[in-house]
Computed example of a mutant assay.
Amino acid sequence: MTAGAQVILRTVQRIYDAAMEPEEWPQCLDAVRDLVGGSHAVFTMNGLDGVQLSTCSRMDARQHGDRCDQILHSDFWAEQMQRFPAGAARTQSSLVPVQDYERTDFYQQLIRPIGGGLAAVAVPWRGSSGWSAVRICRPLDERDFGAEELNRLQALVPHLAKAGKLNRRLAGIDPRATGALAAIDALGLGLILLNRHGRPVYRSERAEAVIAERDGLLADAYGLATTLPAQTRALHQAIAAAMLLAGGPDTADDALSHAAAVMLRIPVSRRPPNGPLILTVIPAPTPDRGTVPGEPGAVAVLISDPDRRCRIDTAGLAGAYGLTRRESDLAALIASGLGPAEAAESLGISVGTARHYLKQVFEKTETHRQAELVRLLLHSFAAPDLGAATER
C-alpha cells in the first residue's frame, strides 16, 4: 500500500470516528484539510429545519469560530451549495467565477477575513430530508485546486455521505436509550449490540476492555465467538433465538407464547485462574420492529465478570438511610465479604464498636441479618471498582 493510500485510509477512519463522536469533527476536518491541501475546511449538515451540525477545522475555529458559524448558517451558503451536484468534488471557480465571487458581501465580510476564497467543494449527499457539504479553502491569491487534489476529496465523498447520515441517525436516538447505555456502563457491565445480521454495531467501553484481553470472548466486525467451539455454538444459538424473539409475533409466535422476554445466559470459559464470564443474550427490539415481516430483530449481549470487584457507594447509602460515615464504611466492608472482626480491624475500631455500628445499620436499613444487608447493598448500591479484577 502506498503512503498516499495509507493517509487516505487514516482520514477515512477519522471520518467514521466523527460520525460516532460529534466532538471529533474538528479533528476529522483537520485531516481532510491536510489531505486535500488547504488552509481550513468547513462542514455542514442541513435538515428540513435548518442546520443540524456545522463545524470548522480546529485551526480555523480557534481564531474564527463565530465567523465560521455565521458562514455555515447563512442563506448565501445554502443557495451556493444547491448549485453543486451531489456526490462530485468540484472547484468553486468552476461554478462561480472568481471575479464575481470576490465582489459579494459574503466573501468580503465572512470569507476574506479567515483567509478563504478558493475552494474544493463537495456535496456528499442531498435528499428530501436534507443535505451535507464540505469545503476545503485557500486564500484567493493562491493557485486553484487541481485535478489530483479534487481526486483526493472525491475519494472521501462516499465516506462523508455515510458518516453524515449515521451522525443524523445517532442524533435521533431516543434519549432514554442513551441513558440506558450510560446506566449499563455505570454498573460495570459490558454491552454489545448486534444488528439483525449478528454483527456488532455498538460496544461499550467495558466490552471493549473484555474483548481486548482475548480471554474467552472474541469479537470482530462480523460477529462474536468464544475460544471454545462448544461455547461458540451455544452463544450463536442464543443469539439466533433472541433475534427470532426480537422480530415480533410475526416471526416468533411459538416462542412468544412461552415467554414475554427471554434471557439466555452463556458461561464463557477463560484461562485459569480466571472464572468464566457470564453472557446474557436478550432481544433488543427497535422502534420499527415488525415493519419487515419475517425479518429477525436486533440483540443485546450483556457481559458480566463475577471476578470483577464491586465497591459500595457509601455516600449514596448514607444519604438514603441516614447512616453515619462509619456505619456506611462498615456496611461496605461487610458487603465485600469481611466479618465484623475483620471489618473492625480495617477501620481501626474495636469489635464491640463494630457490632454496635452494625446494629445501627440493621435498624436504619430495616434488615435483620448480614445476608439481607449484603443483598440490599449489592442490588442497590454496588458500583464498578475502577481497579481491575480481584487479586488472586
Rank of each mutant, 00 (worst) to 15 (best):
M1V: 07
Y16P: 03
E24V: 15
W25A: 05
Q27Y: 13
C28P: 03
V32Q: 04
L35A: 10
A41C: 15
V42I: 13
G47C: 06
S57C: 05
D60F: 08
R62C: 03
R62S: 07
R67E: 08
R67V: 14
Q70E: 14
I71E: 10
H73P: 00
A89D: 09
V98N: 06
D100Q: 06
Y101T: 10
R103S: 15
T104R: 05
Q108E: 14
L110P: 07
I111A: 01
G116C: 11
L118W: 12
S128A: 15
G130K: 04
R138A: 05
A147M: 03
A155G: 01
L156F: 05
L160F: 05
G164A: 07
G164K: 04
K165F: 06
A180L: 14
I184M: 03
L187I: 09
L193D: 05
R199C: 14
R199V: 05
V201P: 02
Y202L: 15
A207P: 02
E208D: 11
E208V: 09
E208F: 00
A209G: 04
V210H: 07
I211A: 01
I211T: 02
E213Y: 00
D215H: 11
L218H: 11
T227R: 14
A230G: 04
Q231A: 03
I239R: 01
A242G: 07
A242E: 09
L256P: 02
V262T: 10
I266Q: 10
P267K: 11
V281I: 08
A284S: 14
T286W: 00
T286C: 02
P287V: 11
P287S: 01
R289C: 00
T314I: 15
R325L: 09
L338R: 08
A343S: 14
T353N: 12
H356Q: 08
H356A: 11
Y357T: 06
F362G: 11
E363V: 08
H368K: 14
L373P: 13
R375F: 01
L377K: 13
H379R: 13
T390E: 12
